[in-house]
């Protein structure tokens, strides 16, 4: 059987050079969207060991649960317990998204020029949905000077141009 090689949609693109920040492509990761059925958030929280509030990130063993919209979380990682299907709708989003990591003392200032919300108020770790010009993005703050920007893979060249 042919085994296909996993590569990111941005692996071949040239990354811009930034003054005091480094921009790198994040390796492909399994992303599962988790949308709780009405009234099932608490049951899901018990089953998973946590569920992110708006803007939040819950770190479990091997998996990050990231708030990704109203009544929606993305699980970044492979380790999800069985028996979730009774509480939520799940779908695989892995190859629909591409991520960059932006790190450096000026990362917040750089993103502030591209994102229309107040990054000074963003928690760390934290999550936000926004737009980069017209592109929908998921922004994760991993540390005060380290951000991840996840975009739809079809728009990744435009996102790079904007950064």
């Amino acid at each position: 059987m042919i085994r296909l090689k996993e590569t990111s949609a941005i692996a071949q693109l040239r990354l811009p050079t930034l003054a005091d920040c480094t921009l790198r492509v994040l390796p492909p990761v399994r992303i599962t969207s988790i949308a709780p059925y009405p009234g099932q958030v608490e049951a899901l929280r018990a089953r998973l060991g946590g569920f992110p509030a708006p803007g939040g990130v819950v770190t479990l063993q091997g998996t990050d649960l990231v708030w990704a919209g109203r009544d929606l979380a993305f699980a970044f990682g492979d380790d999800l317990p069985d028996g979730l299907a009774a509480h939520c709708s799940m779908s695989d989003q892995s190859d629909g998204w591409c991520g960059f990591a932006l790190q450096g003392a000026g990362a917040q200032a750089l993103l502030a020029r591209r994102l229309p919300f107040d990054l000074r108020k963003m928690a760390s770790p934290g999550s936000a949905r926004s737009v980069m010009d017209h592109l929908p993005v998921l922004v994760l703050r991993r540390a005060s000077d380290r951000f991840e920007i996840w975009v739809w893979r079809s728009m990744v060249q435009s996102a790079l141009a904007h950064i």
């Binding site: 708006p54 803007g55 919209g69 229309p116 919300f117 107040d118 108020k121 949905r129 926004s130 737009v131």
Partner: peptide, 11 residues
């Protein structure tokens, strides 16, 4: 209600 105060261009 989820994200707090946001710019008009997001709406």
């Amino acid at each position: 209600p989820c994200c707090g105060w946001r710019d008009l261009r997001e709406f």
